[in-house]
Amino acid sequence: MPRARHDGIELYYEQVGSGDTVVFLPEAGLGAWSWGWQHDAVAGPFESLVVDPRGTGRSDAADDYGVETLAADLEAVLRDANVRSAHLVGHGLGGAVAVAYAREYNRARSLALVTTPAAGDVVDTDALGRLFSDEWPSVAFSESYVGVAPRDEIEGWRRLDDADADAREQLFAAYRAFDPGALYEITVPTLVLGALDSPVIPEPACETLAQGLPRGEYEQVEGRHLAHLEHSRAVNDRLLQFLEE
């Protein structure tokens, strides 16, 4: 299994498919399972690369979980995987890491940011914490979808992949501290998708992010914080259209 090394820790990742590389970066504390609905759609016309961030899944835990450190982890993964350029797809904190990476490194070809705010001070970490409690379905999904969501499967994946409480606390703190800096300096094409009813991120904060990016475009997505799972067909169609463009 491929593992990159950075800052004294090992970082697990998986590559599937061929073609231009699309990297998936999950929300704070969530495992790579949370991109399963998009991974399969992309791993055909593109190569899909899914990362377990430090403290999550099969990657090592650490002391430093800052956004800049997570971006440096991503650089180590792409270097190890011999990826010269990649499209970055991030959810929540994963989107913040993608933004930080595009500012600091030169491998990002485009960004697709799902329910990612313009700055971390708007993140409701109490609501994000409920995503790791028995209340998680109501945070993740709209009421109409909770009854049909594959909850048993998801809970099994979560037990294997999600970060533990200590790592989550530090990831949440890193998310709240996220400051993207001068957005006009990030000139890669960027698609921002904002969940209309996320209890974690106010939807206008996602639109603000898109408006601050020179090549940003914004679209709303029905649903709560895991809207990209609940409405995966629509999200996948839009993501593939964006990547192909």
Rank of each mutant, 00 (worst) to 15 (best):
G55R: 14
G55H: 14
G55M: 11
T56K: 10
T56F: 05
T56I: 15
G57H: 03
G57F: 02
G57Y: 05
R58S: 12
R58D: 15
R58F: 11
S59H: 14
S59M: 13
D60Q: 06
A61C: 10
A61W: 12
A62S: 10
A62C: 00
D63G: 15
D63K: 12
D64R: 06
D64E: 07
Y65K: 06
Y65C: 00
Y65N: 04
Y65Q: 02
G66Q: 05
G66D: 03
G66H: 02
V67N: 08
E68C: 01
E68Y: 01
E68I: 01
E68P: 02
T69Q: 13
T69Y: 04
T69P: 01
L70T: 00
L70S: 02
A71L: 05
A71V: 01
A71E: 00
A71Y: 02
A72Q: 09
A72C: 06
D73L: 03
D73I: 04
L74G: 04
L74V: 02
L74Y: 00
E75L: 09
E75P: 01
E75R: 14
A76H: 02
A76M: 03
A76D: 07
V77Q: 09
V77H: 10
L78W: 02
R79M: 07
R79G: 11
D80W: 12
D80A: 15
A81Q: 05
N82G: 09
N82T: 07
N82D: 14
V83R: 15
V83W: 07
V83H: 08
R84C: 10
R84Q: 15
R84L: 10
R84N: 13
S85L: 09
A86T: 07
A86I: 01
A86F: 05
H87E: 09
L88W: 05
L88T: 01
L88A: 05
V89D: 14
V89K: 10
V89N: 14
V89C: 12
V89M: 10
G90N: 12
G90D: 08
G90L: 04
G90I: 08
H91Y: 13
H91T: 12
G92Y: 05
G92P: 08
G92F: 10
G92S: 12
G92E: 10
L93C: 08
L93A: 12
G94I: 08
G94D: 14
G95F: 13
G95Q: 13
G95K: 11
G95V: 07
A96D: 00
A96H: 04
A96F: 10
A96K: 08
V97M: 08
V97E: 00
V97D: 03
V97K: 01
V97G: 00
V97F: 04
V99E: 09
A100D: 10
A100T: 11
A100G: 04
Y101I: 00
Y101D: 03
Y101Q: 05
Y101T: 07
A102M: 07
A102Q: 12
R103I: 07
R103Q: 13
E104R: 15
E104H: 13
E104T: 13
E104L: 00
E104G: 00
Y105A: 04
Y105H: 15
Y105N: 02
N106R: 14
N106P: 09
N106T: 13
N106C: 01
R107V: 04
R107Q: 03
R107N: 04
A108W: 00
A108M: 03
A108S: 01
A108K: 06
A108Y: 01
R109S: 15
S110Y: 08
L111C: 05
L111F: 03
L111M: 11
A112Y: 12
A112E: 04
L113N: 10
L113A: 10
